[in-house]
Design a protein around this nucleic acid. Structure first.
Lengths: 243, 243
DNA sequence: GTTGATTTGTCCGTATGTATA
DNA sequence: GTATACATACGGACAAATCAA
């Protein structure tokens, strides 16, 4: 089964050179070009545009670090593998990327105590009007930002958790300080969307980038909810592995 | 913690009206506008553009079915909930959306017998040079396309599986015809990317749409791999629920 | 019922960016 | 590099519909 490539779309609000850049990036991700890109004239014919337009696309991808052009030789692909982040009943960030990276750490970006909204009340099993501690955190591995999370903890039980997190850079350690020796993932819902402005900045992504979103509740050994979180992963850096 | 909205970017290869449309879609997804959109002049000021540019963005979103504009009254949000698709050891498509939809079915788009590539050989535990049946399928619920899948089955065992799938519209039924009474999910890897042209067409999405991608291996009760698949879900219609 | 404020819809003209030849 | 065509974005003006005082 071969399917003709849909033609690039004019007056779609996206410039042709950018559509072609996206296509080439996608094709590379799918392993379509093993190592070298076809010559510019071939690509121009393939996409039904002028060679100059293809050149604009390639130049943008070179800027991004996806391609490397060598005059007289050709245009070559710069490869990098994705991190596999495990999702399961006993997911810990610190254990998550075992063996794939070194030097992982969590950074506290912001915190506040607020009244829980309806979603948070239901997720954490709180009563109307209860307060929660909100943490905005960033996780890095080998100096590269990996994920950005918004977490809620019941304030009556984890009043000063931001302090413990800021010190240790780990949710697991911070919860231990409150006598929670262990915790379990009760539920995880995974979705994907375009990154918000804040996430673009923190995760050092370019506009239009995609984030994988996990929304989950962690419970202590007694089954009591301790944490309700939404974590956004840069989709071109991380994939989720369900085990 | 409040963060200023990043300004829309001129001459970035993406038209301002499209950037603004994406932003508004995002904000709606985050629940920022409860029911009504702010007036066009306010949005224009907020994004730092002319009112006409905002109007182009809104007009595109009306076309998509995200918004509804009423002269003299305002612009309103058209809401629709996402389908929760379960991922786990015993995921079945037919069981997956239980209670959320009626009238589910699978459609065979294409099939062929090919020599397995290296990835497929490893996933299915085949020997070098083995052949596999490839199925391209589309799943619909209530007449709406939900997902698009590419599946590989060992050809020596499931020689004519496309026929059974075309008849029943179900992988579970097709495998039963070959004496596989039950099967289990061995591994699932989840990622997200922009939809390819083929997926855009089949899933009836607009350019730039995101797909959630699950890559998985199913094994029979003896632990023998029977199916290696990649399924793409429209990310604005489906979320994955890990249980 | 009238008036005025608000909000979306339509038209004009002009400047700049994008893509082709 | 130059010329041409079209899409994008802006600015202003006014019409049409809605709503509340």
């Amino acid at each position: 089964m071969t399917r003709e490539a849909a033609r690039v779309q004019r007056r779609s609000g996206i410039a042709l050179w950018r559509q072609i850049a996206d296509r080439i990036r996608l094709a590379i991700g799918a392993g379509e070009f093993s190592e070298r890109l076809p010559p510019e004239v071939d690509l121009a014919e393939r996409f039904g545009v002028n060679r100059h337009t293809v050149r604009s696309a390639i130049s943008a991808l070179v800027q991004e670090g996806v391609l490397r052009a060598e005059q007289g030789r050709g245009t070559f692909i710069e490869r990098k593998r994705k991190l596999a982040y495990p999702i399961g009943a006993r997911t810990r960030f610190s254990e998550g990327l075992q063996g794939q990276t070194r030097d992982r750490r969590g950074i506290l970006l912001a915190h506040e105590v607020v009244e829980a909204d309806q979603t948070t009340i239901e997720a954490l099993g709180l009563s109307e009007g209860a307060t929660v501690v909100r943490l905005e955190t960033l996780s890095e591995a080998d100096g590269r930002p990996i994920s950005r999370a918004t977490s809620f903890f019941p304030a009556h039980r984890f009043g000063n958790i931001e302090g413990h997190y800021a010190e240790t850079g780990s949710i697991t350690s911070a919860l231990k300080a409150y006598g929670v020796p262990d915790y379990f993932r009760r539920s995880t819902v995974i979705s994907a969307r375009h990154a918000s402005d804040a996430d673009l900045a923190d995760l050092k992504l370019s506009p239009g980038a995609i984030v994988l979103v996990t929304v989950y509740v962690n419970v202590d050994p007694d089954g009591k909810p301790v944490q309700f979180s939404e974590t956004r992963f840069a989709a071109d850096v991380v994939e989720l592995s369900v085990s």
